Simulated assay, not measured.
Amino acid sequence: MPSARAWFPYRKPTDACELFAFAHAGAGSTVFSGLREALSGSCVALVPAVLPGRERRLRDAPHRDLPSLLAEFESMAIADEFSAFTGDYALLGHCSGAIVAFEIARLLEAAPCRGPRLLVVCSCLPPPLIRDTGTSRLPAGELFARTAELGGTPDALLADPEFLEMLERPLRADWELFDGYAHRPGPKLKTPILAVRGVDDPDLPAADLERWRDQTSGGFSTLELAAGHWALADAGAAVLAREIPAVLGEPRG
């Protein structure tokens, strides 16, 4: 069974609030490099998750549905006695990673550990509005073209045949997970939510972003960045790096 170290291999001892971050479909930890750098020196330390089928876990089969991914996460956390989630921490997800982060927040609120201090959801419709996009069933070329349209993956990599061959398995699995997602109504989170969108994102209108409010009984705020769907480009990362510590406020005891 994968360990907490496998899920969070770049985690280091810190007194800061840890921000466990989940990337969009097919992406790995490097997509958060800009945000992690922008947060350096603040009260927040970004810790990217590495999911099965990518980076150090390339040989692991990627999950094609969210329940199996959550089951692996829960088994890992139980075996680790939830030690990664006993201090100050928050969760962040971008696009499909926001749904993963949301469902993990639900799981952790019901677990014998501290709940997250904040859930940051970027460039993602609220759970009840998620629909099957059909992207997971596209031929490889169209799948890569759709991924390129959303941003967040360097053009040079998308032009590299060897990279694309390696990318297709986790990318298609992630889209299957997202396309197959079915929201399960349940108690609202107690965790506050910061919902983020790029002002030029055609897939996420401001009115839909506001509906994340319905998922929490805690605080709720929104942030619009000068960006498209890929909201964590350099300028967006700098703004978000100021906003997250501000929303968190003083570390709790």
Rank of each mutant, 00 (worst) to 15 (best):
P2R: 08
S3C: 04
A4H: 05
R5S: 14
R5D: 14
F8H: 06
P9A: 06
R11A: 15
K12L: 15
T14W: 06
D15L: 13
A16D: 13
E18R: 15
A21G: 03
A21K: 01
F22G: 00
G26Y: 13
G28D: 00
S29L: 06
S29F: 07
S29K: 05
T30D: 07
V31D: 05
F32R: 00
S33C: 02
L35K: 05
E37Q: 14
E37L: 12
A38Q: 11
V44Q: 12
P48V: 02
L51C: 00
R54G: 08
R54I: 09
R56L: 14
L58V: 08
L58C: 00
R59C: 01
R59P: 00
D60L: 09
H63A: 10
H63R: 12
L66R: 00
P67L: 03
L70Q: 04
E72D: 15
E74L: 15
E74T: 12
M76L: 08
I78M: 11
A79N: 11
D80K: 11
E81S: 14
F82P: 09
T86H: 14
D88P: 13
A90Q: 07
L92N: 02
L92G: 06
G93R: 05
H94D: 12
C95F: 08
A98H: 04
I99V: 15
I99P: 06
V100N: 04
F102S: 05
L107F: 10
E109I: 01
A110Q: 15
A111I: 10
C113M: 10
L119D: 00
L119S: 03
L119H: 05
V121Q: 02
C122G: 01
P126V: 01
P127R: 11
L129K: 13
L129Y: 12
L138R: 13
P139A: 13
A140K: 11
G141T: 09
G141P: 06
R146M: 08
R146I: 00
R146S: 14
T147F: 06
T147I: 04
A148T: 04
A148E: 14
E149L: 02
E149S: 12
E149Y: 01
L150N: 07
L150F: 07
G152C: 08
G152M: 09
G152P: 09
A156K: 06
L157T: 01
D160K: 03
P161Q: 02
F163G: 01
E165C: 09
E168I: 15
D174K: 02
W175L: 08
L177D: 01
L177M: 03
D179K: 03
G180I: 01
Y181D: 04
R184V: 15
R184E: 14
P185S: 08
G186T: 05
L189N: 02
K190S: 08
R197M: 09
R197A: 10
G198R: 04
V199W: 00
P202R: 10
L204K: 11
A207H: 09
A207C: 04
D208I: 00
L209T: 03
L209E: 03
W212P: 03
W212S: 12
R213V: 02
R213P: 05
D214R: 11
Q215N: 08
A226T: 09
G228Q: 07
W230G: 03
A231C: 04
L232P: 04
D234I: 00
A235H: 10
G236V: 12
A238H: 08
A238N: 06
V239Q: 08
L240D: 07
A241M: 12
E243I: 07
I244G: 06
A246E: 14
V247L: 11
L248E: 12
G249V: 13
G249C: 12
P251S: 10
